[in-house]
Amino acid sequence: MISNYFFINFIRFVLLVLVQVLVFNRLNFFGFINPMVYILFLYWYPIKEKRAAFIGLSFLLGLSIDFFSDTMALHAASTTTIAYLRPAIMRFIFGVNLEFQSFKLSNSTKAQQFTFLTLLIVVHHFVFFTLEVFSLINILLILKKVLIISLATLILCLLFGTLFSVKKE
């Protein structure tokens, strides 16, 4: 069972990196919208797995995207942040349900899943564009980018989510 999880997550990791850098980084919709669908890795990652490994893995995921897109460690920083904040976000959304042994993401309501994904994306994009622009004078630019690109990422993540839904986990 453990090796199965490991295997699935490994495949997911590689595929999401490739899809991100070869397809979505080249999208440039309206000249600047590049959705970041690799966040789905953090959305799909098993809840009960070790937290330290999860944070480390997310850092590696961000770093691999950074290597491809020449962005130094922007993706790594923002992905590590949401990996660290994920338990807090989940407690906020799923509340006491999270404590049950039988809790699974697929068992929760659609609204909860949607909010969870949205929060992950918004926090990620906020950290990402703050670090990328790196000046408070351009706060409007940051907010504009966060808003528009979050929306694009959310739509694509929802589409991907329905395409490759994880019923078994």
Binding site: A73, A77, T81
Partner: peptide, 8 residues
């Protein structure tokens, strides 16, 4: 985070 911030 410090590693990534350093790079950034």
């Amino acid at each position: 985070m410090l590693i990534s911030l350093g790079f950034t």
